[in-house]
Amino acid sequence: MNGTEGPNFYVPFSNATGVVRSPFEYPQYYLAEPWQFSMLAAYMFLLIVLGFPINFLTLYVTVQHKKLRTPLNYILLNLAVADLFMVLGGFTSTLYTSLHGYFVFGPTGCNLEGFFATLGGEIALWSLVVLAIERYVVVCKPMSNFRFGENHAIMGVAFTWVMALACAAPPLAGWSRYIPEGLQCSCGIDYYTLKPEVNNESFVIYMFVVHFTIPMIIIFFCYGQLVFTVKEAAAQQQESATTQKAEKEVTRMVIIMVIAFLICWVPYASVAFYIFTHQGSNFGPIFMTIPAFFAKSAAIYNPVIYIMMNKQFRNCMLTTICCGKNPLGDDEASATVSKTETSQVAPA
Rank of each mutant, 00 (worst) to 15 (best):
Y191C: 10
R135L: 07
M207R: 08
I214N: 09
R135Y: 02
N315K: 15
P171E: 01
T92I: 14
C110S: 00
L88P: 07
D190Y: 04
H211R: 04
L46R: 00
L328P: 11
P347C: 13
A299T: 10
P12R: 00
K296M: 11
T58R: 08
S186W: 08
Q184P: 00
G101E: 08
G106W: 06
P215L: 05
P347T: 15
E341K: 12
Y178C: 05
C167R: 07
P180T: 06
V20G: 00
T58M: 09
K311E: 10
P267L: 03
P53R: 02
G182V: 02
F52Y: 09
T94S: 15
R252H: 11
P347L: 13
C167Y: 06
Q344R: 11
A346P: 15
A295V: 13
Y178D: 01
M216K: 09
F56Y: 09
P171S: 03
V210F: 11
P347S: 14
A164V: 10
L79P: 08
R135G: 08
C185R: 05
S297R: 02
L131P: 07
K296E: 08
M253I: 14
G90V: 11
W126L: 09
Q28H: 00
V137M: 11
P347R: 15
M44T: 08
P267R: 00
T340M: 12
A117G: 14
A292E: 08
M207K: 14
P347A: 15
N78I: 01
F220L: 13
G188E: 03
I179F: 01
P180S: 03
P23A: 00
S176F: 03
L47R: 02
M39R: 01
V87L: 14
G90D: 10
T97I: 09
F220C: 13
G188R: 04
V87D: 02
N15S: 04
T320N: 12
A164E: 04
G106R: 06
C110R: 06
Y60H: 14
P170H: 05
Y178N: 02
G89D: 04
V345M: 13
W161R: 06
C140S: 13
R147C: 13
V345L: 14
C187Y: 01
S186P: 05
T289P: 01
R69H: 13
H211P: 01
G51V: 09
V345G: 14
C222R: 06
S127F: 04
P180A: 03
G284S: 15
P171Q: 07
T193M: 08
T4K: 07
I305V: 11
Q344P: 10
V209M: 12
C167W: 03
G114V: 02
G174S: 10
R135P: 05
E122G: 07
L40R: 00
P23H: 07
T62N: 15
N73S: 12
G114D: 06
P170R: 04
A299S: 12
P347Q: 12
P215T: 05
T94I: 09
D190N: 04
F45L: 09
G109R: 08
G182S: 03
N55K: 07
C110Y: 03
T342M: 15
R252P: 10
E181K: 05
E150K: 10
V104I: 15
M216L: 10
L125R: 11
M216R: 00
A169P: 01
L57R: 02
P171L: 03
A333V: 12
R21C: 14
C110F: 01
G101V: 07
D190G: 05
C187G: 01
T17M: 04
R135W: 06
M163T: 11
P23L: 02
S343C: 14
K296N: 12
S270R: 04
V104F: 13
G51A: 12
G51R: 05
A298D: 11
G18D: 06
